[in-house]
Amino acid sequence: MVSLEVKHLSKTYKKKLVLNDLNFTVNKGEFLSILGPSGCGKTTLLKILIGIEKSDQGQIIKDNTDITNFDAANRGMGIVFQNYALFPNMNVLENVMYALKIKMKNKDKAKEESLKILKMVKMDQELKKYPHELSGGQQQRVAIARTLVLNPDIILFDEPMSALDADNRLTLRKELKALQTKFNTTMIYITHDQEEAFSLSDRVIVMNEGVIEQIDTPNKIFNNPKNAYVKNFVTRHLIEKVESIEKCTGIDL
């Protein structure tokens, strides 16, 4: 079932065509990554999807409703930023409760809901801690909890793991995947890390300079790259990996 449909989306910024006639769909419960190098337009795309910026052309249709001109608050989407943007002056519980409290106008109910979600992301033992006392991974979990508690249909991620070290990234990838399966929320994930995109996603959109090069499952992209760019992009990482293994082990693969 199609949850989100993007049709002929274009955006020009300072005379440069940042997004060039994008067309794609996102299925319900799907984990979709948008993969590309810095400057390819993926962050702009994210901002337009979530409603912080407006496209010059095109439509966004969610659950059969045209939300192109909807306010960010009314799109039923949540967002997790690269630096998580947790409120530094509130503890874990307060961070998660904040928006819900305003929406529900009932502090106790909001607290109840928040505790539920926090338990699910395994942060219920750190309720009184402040963001600066949490590790990067813990902060990410709280950031996700903060969006989940508002029950969005789609959660967008803006390169949330780029600030973490390799170990943490692996752990968090596993957790994120587990959460997605549990909540069955549609997730759109922006990243420049091919390994990350491939390991997490059901499908991947490979983007380059405002254009979609290929949309497919990781497997298909890997085995059937549509064009030279995709091929290079994918294999380059693989080659780097092989080279580093060769160096470490001394074996010529």
Binding site: I50, G51, I52, D71, A72, A73, N74, R75, M77, G78, I79, F81, N83, A85, F87, P88, Y98, A99, I102, K103, R146, T147, L150
Partner: peptide, 13 residues
């Protein structure tokens, strides 16, 4: 953090 306003927008705050 420059993202607080965006968080607010998306959460209807």
């Amino acid at each position: 953090n420059p993202n607080f306003e965006m968080v607010a927008k998306t959460c209807n705050i």
